[in-house]
Computed example of a mutant assay.
Amino acid sequence: MKYEKTVILKTGVPLQVRNGCETDAQTVYENFTQTHTETDYLLSYADERSFDPDGDAACLKEKAESADEVELIALIDGKVVGTAGVQAVGKKYKVKHRAEFGISILKDYWGRGIGRVLTECCIDCARKAGYAQLELSVVANNKRAIQMYQKAGFKEYGRNPKGFNSRLTGFQELVYMHLEL
């Protein structure tokens, strides 16, 4: 799915959101490593990567050519400051109406509205792809993210008290949220 948009953040700085492409693989790899080191709220740790830059290049190419999935990068002055994506829950008839949403932003760029922009872009992509529902899970202690998702229209539909097992804090409760499109 092709996507590109530029918005002016509340700080007055332009943010470019576009598909990650093969040539972005190294910087996306570095961004993943940094974001997954800076917070304990994401699904995995930096040392649990399943791809190297070559694998990231192939994945980015595949998403850019997909009709119903996307991996977006957010850039400020040419620097990748965040990533977000929409992925099908599955291809089988009973679940093909559902997509999952994930996002990560460099800690130095939190609080600037980048998460809101990436969330809105992913919602737009999910709608264009024809999904009926967009889903996410978020650590219950991540109050800022939950508020942002609620403002975007996501509703809580359940919790898992031992959803993540953090290396730092032990079990983390996950909040499951969805948005009807």
Rank of each mutant, 00 (worst) to 15 (best):
V86T: 01
E48N: 08
G90D: 01
A88R: 07
K92D: 08
L60Q: 04
Y93P: 09
K92E: 07
G78I: 07
K92T: 12
K79Y: 10
S50T: 15
K63S: 02
A46F: 15
A58W: 09
L75E: 14
A57Y: 07
V86G: 02
D54W: 13
E48S: 06
K79V: 15
K63N: 05
K94T: 12
V80W: 00
A57I: 03
V70K: 03
L72F: 04
A58H: 07
R49I: 12
K61V: 07
D68V: 02
D47R: 13
I76H: 02
E48V: 13
G78A: 03
Q87L: 03
L43F: 04
A64Q: 06
E48T: 12
V70D: 01
D77Y: 10
G55Q: 05
I76G: 04
V70G: 05
D52Y: 08
K61L: 09
A74R: 08
R49C: 12
G85N: 00
E65W: 04
G55R: 03
Q87P: 01
I76Y: 01
R49H: 14
P53V: 04
K92W: 06
S44R: 10
A57M: 03
A84E: 03
S66E: 00
E71V: 02
S50M: 11
A57R: 06
K92H: 09
G85C: 00
V70M: 00
S66W: 02
